[in-house]
């Protein structure tokens, strides 16, 4: 998949000839920003609730590095963008998992309370 993408990207870039590639700078700033964001996300424990998204982001980080080495800057930028949106999704998933856990806990607490107080009959499911 990535292999094919890369090939396609290279192909695309080749088709664009010097025009696009020559004018672009290597996105090293974006790359190092991505690296920092990823490290921070991992420190924040997102690997537990959104392991898949973080793995995608890491793969794209690696791909972006490779693309930069090969001077495929546009592809590198796309990969960085993909990595970033995976991090964003990972954060969103973590927050959603927290909210879900909170809801589950609150439901459990209310159910327990109702049961302990014998109020089950008063309210529906």
């Amino acid at each position: 998949m990535r292999q094919k993408q890369t090939k396609t990207a290279i192909g695309g870039c080749a088709l664009l000839t010097a025009a696009a590639c020559a004018t672009m700078q290597a996105p090293t700033t974006e790359l190092s920003q991505l690296q920092r964001d990823l490290e921070q996300a991992e420190r924040a424990g997102l690997a537990q609730s959104a392991a898949l998204e973080l793995r995608f982001a890491n793969e794209r980080l690696a791909g972006a590095r490779l693309a930069i080495e090969q001077h495929e800057y546009e592809q590198a930028l796309q990969l960085i963008e993909q990595a970033n949106i995976n991090i964003e999704l990972a954060e969103e998933r973590a927050a959603a998992a927290d909210a879900r856990a909170t809801v589950t806990e609150l439901k459990r607490r209310n159910d327990t309370l109702r049961r302990d107080l014998g109020l089950d009959e008063d309210r529906g499911q």
Partner: peptide, 14 residues
Amino acid sequence: LEIAQTAAERERDE
């Protein structure tokens, strides 16, 4: 779209 979906779920849960 997944982010929107997840965020919507989160907001609903909140």
